[in-house]
Amino acid sequence: MEFIVNNFNYWIYVILMMIGLFAMIAKNNLIKKLVGMTIFQTAIILFYVSIGVKGEGATIPILSYEQVHGTHHVEEADHAGEDDSHHAQADLPEIDARTITNPIPHVLMLTAIVVGVATLGVALAISQRIFHFYGSLDEDVILAKIQKGDG
């Protein structure tokens, strides 16, 4: 049971990713290929985000007000002036890293999502152009047209 729980997430990501990969390679329709590409990329995002999970009891990677500014009043922290870092640190409550989700995968995946969107956008633009030139989005039809010397 524990084995299943431990690995379930990873299996799902593998299955999703393979669905995407299959579509990218096997589908004839260019748009279906792009759908596959998106599934493929999303699976990777799922995988990354899974890395950062910390069991039950861990919360989102946003600190509470007290955790950042200490239990003192906010003016006091400002009052400490230039060298407040040491001073402030002494007053800050201890953070248990186990209670806060790992932020790194989230940061990375924000970037990966943006990259995915960008790629998808460019790919769509290119497929529009292909449709404009060849009047079809089916790979076989396009290849046949190219072979006929229409390329």
Binding site: P61, I62, V68, S85, L92, A97, I100, V107
Partner: peptide
């Protein structure tokens, strides 16, 4: 990042 960023950047949102 979890423990020091509040001191180093004063931003609560770690991401």
């Amino acid at each position: 990042y979890i423990e020091q960023s509040r001191v180093e950047t004063a931003v609560p949102n770690l991401v």
